[in-house]
């Protein structure tokens, strides 16, 4: 990964763009200088921190190379945390993708610049990308011990949702808040794919005597499948890397990986190990890289129909 980050600086020498050399008056070397500030910025604040984060997983307290930190990833406690993160992400990704796709379907044919689309786009953007801590507050107010829905269920139906103990501040409590940003993210990412369905395809189907069901069965579903799975993977990655909502909601314990990284960062030794944060970060990155690589693969496949 690092080599590819570095390549803007390394790959500049021959600008291969057709006609690039005969274009400008000033020599190419002058333009190359223009790329320096951004490259330096990326190296300092993206490449370096990433390498440091991954690197600390591979060095011991004295800075010597070691594999022993990675052994922490095999620790039952850590394995359990990764398990929690994975099932939480998978569950909210699948449910989020299905509900989000259904909502996208409802929006087919709505005018892109109309009021409905504008409001849905903006609301989805807020919830999917900028909610974080505030979504935790929203769910404390909704299904917290004194939450609106909790009290309403208790007073109206006599149901106590916390009869078996308060689960909101534990891993199951993260499911609803996570869905609250997963569904909007699905809407943002999947809607463009639905818009890529060309009206001509529907017309052609009708001309050949196909029904609406036939259209979805033979055209809509196959064309959209790569996008759908791709978006589902993006949702998985999104939940897997999410920290703020969980941090604000769970006051104690480290049920998911990001929370365990926090614990490892704020106290020097967790599980009696040094540099555990680095090892956990490494584990997270491995999962993220695999998921995102699959995502971009599927998106390239999906792009075939969206020209």
């Amino acid at each position: 990964m690092s080599e590819r980050i570095l390549s803007p600086a390394a790959g500049i020498a021959p600008p291969r763009g057709p006609g690039a050399p005969r274009r400008g008056r000033s020599p190419i070397s002058g333009s190359v200088l223009g790329l320096v500030p951004f490259t330096a910025y990326i190296l300092l604040f993206l490449a370096l921190p990433t390498l440091l984060a991954l690197g600390t997983g591979l060095v011991d307290g004295d800075g010597a190379f070691t594999w022993t930190n990675l052994a922490a990833l095999g620790d039952p406690v850590v394995l359990n945390t990764f398990g929690n993160s994975l099932w939480l992400s998978a569950l909210t990704a699948v449910v989020g993708a299905v509900v989000g796709a259904l909502f996208c379907y409802a929006l087919i044919g709505a005018k892109p610049t109309g009021v409905l689309r504008t409001v849905v786009d903006a609301a989805s953007g807020v919830l999917a990308q900028f909610g974080g801590v505030m979504l935790a507050f929203a769910f404390v107010a909704t299904i917290g011990i004194q939450g609106m829905v909790t009290l309403w269920l208790r007073d109206t139906f006599g149901t106590d949702i916390f009869a078996d103990g308060v689960w909101l501040y534990d891993t199951p409590g993260l499911i609803l808040p996570y869905l609250y940003f997963q569904v909007p993210l699905m809407i943002i990412t999947f809607l463009p794919a639905l818009e890529g369905l060309k009206p001509q395809w529907a017309e052609a189907t009708a001309m050949l005597g196909g029904s609406r069901f036939g259209y979805w069965r033979h055209i809509g579903a196959p064309v959209l499948l790569p996008s759908f799975v791709g978006c589902l993977l993006l949702l998985f990655a999104n939940a897997f890397s999410s920290f703020a909502t969980a941090a604000a909601l769970t006051s104690q314990g480290s049920q998911i990986v990001p929370l365990q990284i926090r614990a490892a960062l704020t106290s020097e030794t967790v599980l009696g190990r040094e540099n555990l944060a680095g090892a956990l970060a490494l584990g997270m990155i491995v999962v993220m890289v695999v998921v995102m690589a699959l995502y971009s693969l599927l998106m390239r496949r999906a792009a075939r129909w969206q020209r």
């Binding site: 300092l44 990433t50 897997f240 970060a281």
Partner: peptide, 23 residues
């Protein structure tokens, strides 16, 4: 450039912060 600019999606903020602390 596109790859670099979209890279922060793949690197969770919580991972970045591990390396940002020394920086």
């Amino acid at each position: 450039l596109e790859f670099v600019c979209l890279l922060p999606i793949t690197i969770p903020a919580i991972v970045l912060v591990v390396g940002l602390a020394p920086v």
